[in-house]
Amino acid sequence: MMNKWLSILILSLLALTANAAKHIPDTVYHHDRMYVDGLRIYSDSAIYQGLNLKIDMFMPILEVARSKGKLQAYEMALNLRLKRRYYPTIELGYAFGETNVSDTYWKGQGGFVKLGLDINGLRKHVDALDALLVGIRVGGAYEKYDLTGVRMAGSYWQPASTRDFINQYSFNCWGEVVTGCQVHVYSGLMMGWYFRLKVLFTRKLKGEEVAPYYIPGFGYRDNTNWGFNYYIGWKF
């Protein structure tokens, strides 16, 4: 049932993005500055050409849906537009949750930051706010977690048992290749999405007894992962 409503929501948001492109902008000039739908357009030669603040709407829904309400993840992004097509980006987020896997109970929380750069592959004109983006990210997450009921393998000499690992800390680092788009809807309102392929760099444990089940910003711990964000943002 939840998946059905999730699909409807996603499709609605996607349709809205597609339709947003059909809007005819209202362009005015004031004190030699150009405004489109009330939003300032910077000069063609300017290095700095605006700032976007974006809030992810998709991952909170996805994580709640696939963890059956036991995991929540939130993410926001801030990017600058430089020289018409470069978007240095910083992304911040937080995740917390708990889950039971094969009678092992994980509970954790942590924050993450990602730094990267997007390049707009679309038109280079300064008044074109829509963007088709390709970029890279380097992410890092620090988290605190508990793993209880971890299975200790039995053998000829001793039966299988369980062990608890409380107050564990972990730092993980990964890289991402991202592709996506952002569409100007009205005034400063932007919408867009990112699809991400992620590769975990910190695969081996260094001094830690156990590894976290979930890495904020990366997802379930594996060598590779994917991610998707659907952003609603504001251009300043």
């Binding site: 349709a15 059909k22 996805l62 696939r66 569409v183 998707f228």
Partner: peptide, 26 residues
């Protein structure tokens, strides 16, 4: 904006990919 529609269609396909992690020890 045909490319936006194209990418949206791609994403609908991606939504169908299972995202539940494996919970069995192999």
């Amino acid at each position: 904006m045909k490319h936006v529609n194209f990418f949206n269609m791609m994403l609908v396909g991606l939504m169908c990919i299972s995202c539940q992690p494996d919970t069995v020890c192999h």
